[in-house]
Amino acid sequence: ETDNCSRMLKYRCPGCIVVRKLLNSRNFSKLLHSCAYQCDHHKVIMEAEDKYKNELRKAFICAKRILLTPCRRRQLSKES
């Protein structure tokens, strides 16, 4: 029985089990993040996506800063 349990835990997590009626593209990632346990499959995907999202967030912040820099703004208004 314990064996069965640990096997369950090893291969399945909320991302695997929660039924589709409760899942969609809007809440899936949040659900995974809110759970202490993820199966290997979901853990690996989640970690890879998180790294990618962090890079993107940084890029967004940089882009914003460039747009808001006064000299850049002057440059933009000169161009237009």
Partner: peptide, 11 residues
């Protein structure tokens, strides 16, 4: 209903 949507994440 038995198909796990969570297995179809496309990264």
């Amino acid at each position: 209903n038995s198909v796990a949507l969570g297995h179809f994440v496309l990264p």
